[in-house]
Design a protein around this nucleic acid. Structure first.
Length: 724
DNA sequence: CGAAAGGCTCTTTTT
DNA sequence: GAGCCTTTCG
């Protein structure tokens, strides 16, 4: 197959420019992934490059897997030794091989969010800091940010400017020590330590530099300082570095991704070739224009001209509902309509939203109507308590010095080792500067606990040691069975709430383990644990299933669907209220919205609800500002209450309007009556030159902006007939 | 020691 | 509303 034949001129240019640095700025749907894949294929097939000399970095494992599949197709054979994966996966592999050089235990475990938090809590405790005063989460993200900027605790100390940062520093320092003792690294360490490794070990670096003649990075706009430093190190010899990205789709700045990497790239590689991919193959003209209307309102941005030869298509539908339940119901019925009336399958449809909590109402509707759906994200499989319990056993078997995992399972299922005992053990471990596991063995020798506790502890140690011994012989699935049998985990689970369902998850875990049963036991365990740490939920999205996809806007990056619903187009949701006071965060929310819009091929629905109960209490939100930015001629707006409310209002008494009852101080959420528009709910109140501009969502006529002094709004009782 | 209940907080996005 | 923490009771 001619690798260049199917490419447009710009794409071809991007593929053929193999010498030196290349920056590809690619709009949504412009065939960016295709370009990277074809470029690799071109390097191998046309230029005769050994795949082992190429590194391609993707944003998710799923993208990596798909790229490998496509490469195999393009090349007509397995591509083999190509280094292909996420930054984290690639770094993990490098550190497995070379970590020794910077004092990293070869069996290091990778801690996830929850493990990290546990360790931060422990650090706070040891430093006698009040956990109420210093939120674990805040410290966690401060530490993560520091690492993403390659700041060691010592570096961080240099730039302390506030008392909080002082606390961060102390916690960070202790946290890092604890990680070391646990022979563990966190996600950020994978990047930071790899950079440190290359910084301090020039021999190792030059080996890798010589190996990777060509480096490609996808989703470059979402790389952070550490990732940028890493590719700069690796490309230090050949400078054949090709990065692909779209500044308008940068949505991970909260994870320290920095758009400025694009600027740095142009500065660090002044000879870089710039290729623009501006033709969109995915979306209708209308959808593309809607996207452009939304993103153009960002000030911190270089304008770019996207175009498409696709047809204009249907107008974008703006759907207004009263509640999120109605919103969800609409989505489901609309999907059913599309499937029955047009050539649309369930798998072509996706519902996207800002926060995971929004999925609940949607799920309920999908379940009620029996429409198959698939939820991406939320509580991820490998984060479920029962799954993590069993993984903790595997981790301890693999590396008994992993105290966080050991502490997790020491009394799960309950075996009479209580909190008191555990904290005494932990204190002892700390004074001895030993791992929990070693402390356990020590304590058993000294017999310093009561006989009953000693017996319990001995039982646990025997269990673990037995498992460790078996782990060398058994394959992974067998080892898992051994754990389950030895701990009575099944009985333990079945005695709990949702026990059956949770046991199913263990069965699923066992299936996943079986895939590794062919490797030798040592290697299988190591590979499995690493994989389990680095998988993202999106990685398991299988497009072959014919189901609707429910997904956050963040995870939707890089995907495409013929039909896209974006739920919750409201102020406070998208943009999220957390971003209100920072203009640059609002810009990121806008990019997020843009990402969602541009996922759509044929049809796009923007949904907003007047009322939404998120986090327990209900709130009334005005339409998202992003909706206001769309040219009216591109959309059709439909209110769902028209028919819904006529039914629900029937029989409700209607108060007679009298001006003397004018409401003087309307509050958001008040129910009001207007002589012309009827009943409605106050959405917002803005002071205006001694008067107030009140936005009211009327049941029959939609949202109106009214001047309080002229509107003669009357406050009315909330009636249960309101569809709230 | 362990289960249960009550109180508290904080509500974003994830490799 | 949920998850986490603390308290209480058996």
């Amino acid at each position: 197959m001619d690798i260049l034949a199917t490419l447009n001129p710009a794409q071809r240019q991007a593929v053929e420019a193999i010498e030196g640095p290349v920056l590809i700025l690619a709009g949504p749907g412009s065939g960016k992934t295709r370009v990277i894949t074809h470029r690799v294929a071109y390097l191998i097939k046309v230029c005769g490059m050994n795949p082992g000399h190429i590194m391609a970095v993707t944003f998710t494992n799923k993208a990596a897997r798909e790229m490998r599949e496509r490469l195999d197709q393009l090349l007509g054979q397995e591509v083999g030794a190509l280094t292909l994966g996420t930054f984290h996966a690639i770094c993990a592999r490098i550190l497995r091989h070379e970590g020794k050089a910077i004092g990293l235990a070869p069996r290091f475990v990778i801690y996830d969010d929850e493990d990290q938090l546990n360790l931060i809590k422990q650090s706070l405790q040891e430093l006698n800091l009040d956990p109420k005063q210093y939120a674990h989460r805040a410290l966690q993200s401060a530490i993560s940010a520091a690492k993403s900027h390659l700041l060691s605790p010592e570096d961080y100390a240099q730039r302390i400017q506030s008392y909080f940062e002082e606390i961060v520093h102390r916690t960070y320092q202790r946290y890092q020590q604890l990680l070391g003792q646990n022979e563990a690294v966190d996600f950020d360490d994978l990047l930071m330590k790899t950079v440190q490794l290359f910084n301090s070990q020039s021999k190792i670096l030059s080996r890798y530099q010589s190996r990777y003649v060509h480096i490609l990075v996808d989703e470059f706009q979402d790389t952070n300082v550490a990732q940028y430093a890493l590719i700069k190190q690796l490309a230090g010899k050949y400078h054949n570095i090709c990065v692909v990205g779209d500044p308008d789709q940068s949505i991970y700045s909260w994870r320290s991704a920095d758009l400025r990497n694009i600027l740095s790239f142009e500065k660090d590689y002044p000879d870089a070739r710039l290729v623009l991919l501006e033709q969109n193959y995915r979306s209708t003209k209308t959808i593309l224009e809607v996207g452009s209307d939304v993103i153009s309102a960002n000030l911190q941005r270089k304008p770019k001209e996207l175009w498409t030869e696709n047809e204009a298509g249907s107008p974008v539908a703006i759907i207004e509902s009263y509640t999120e339940a109605e919103e969800a119901q609409y989505v489901v019925s609309e999907i059913e309509k599309l499937v029955s009336q047009e050539q649309i399958s369930l798998r072509d449809c996706a519902v996207m939203y800002r926060v995971n909590a929004q999925s609940r109402a949607l799920e309920e509707a999908f379940m009620r109507y029996g429409v198959p759906y698939k939820l991406i994200g939320g509580t991820r499989f490998y984060q479920r308590r029962e799954v993590k319990d069993i993984i903790a056993y595997l981790r301890v078997i693999h590396n008994p010095h992993d105290n966080v995992s050991l502490a997790r399972i020491i009394n799960i299922p309950g075996r009479g080792i209580g909190e008191r005992t555990t904290s005494q053990l932990q204190a002892r471990a700390r004074t001895d500067n030993a791992s929990l596991y070693n402390t356990l063995e020590q304590v058993l020798e000294e017999k310093i606990f009561t006989p009953r506790i000693i017996q319990a502890l001995a039982g646990f140690v025997t269990l673990i040691n037995g498992l460790i011994a078996n782990s060398h012989e058994l394959n992974l699935a067998e080892l898992l069975d051994e754990i389950l049998a030895g701990t009575g985990y099944r009985e333990y689970l079945l005695g709990k709430e949702n026990g059956e369902e949770r046991w199913e998850n263990i069965t699923e875990l066992r299936n996943a383990a079986r895939e590794h049963s062919e490797l030798n036991p040592e290697e299988a365990l190591a590979t499995f644990l690493e994989k389990v740490s680095l998988v993202a939920d999106i990685d398991n999205l299988d497009e072959k299933d014919d189901t609707v996809t429910l997904i956050t806007l963040h995870q939707a990056k890089g995907l495409e669907f013929l039909v896209v619903f974006i739920a919750g187009m409201e102020e406070g949701v998208l943009p999220h209220r957390k971003s209100f006071d920072d203009p640059s965060e609002i810009e990121e929310e806008r990019r997020l919205c843009y990402v969602g819009i541009t996922r759509a091929g044929k049809r796009l629905y923007l949904l907003r609800s007047f009322r939404r109960s998120l986090f327990g209490s209900g709130s009334a939100n005005p339409a998202s500002r992003f909706i206001q930015d769309i040219s009216p001629h591109l959309v059709t707006t439909k209110g769902l209450w028209d028919k819904v409310n006529i039914n629900s209002i029937a029989g409700v008494h209607t108060p007679s309007p009298t001006h003397s009852n004018d409401i003087s101080d309307p509050k958001v959420g008040d129910h009001v009556y207007h002589s012309k528009f009827g009943k409605g709910i106050v959405m917002s109140c803005l002071p205006d030159k001694g008067d107030q501009i009140v936005t009211v969502a009327f049941e029959e006529s939609g949202a109106k902006k009214l001047l309080l002094s002229l509107a003669h709004l009357e406050k009315i009782e909330k009636t249960t007939d309101f569809p709230l």
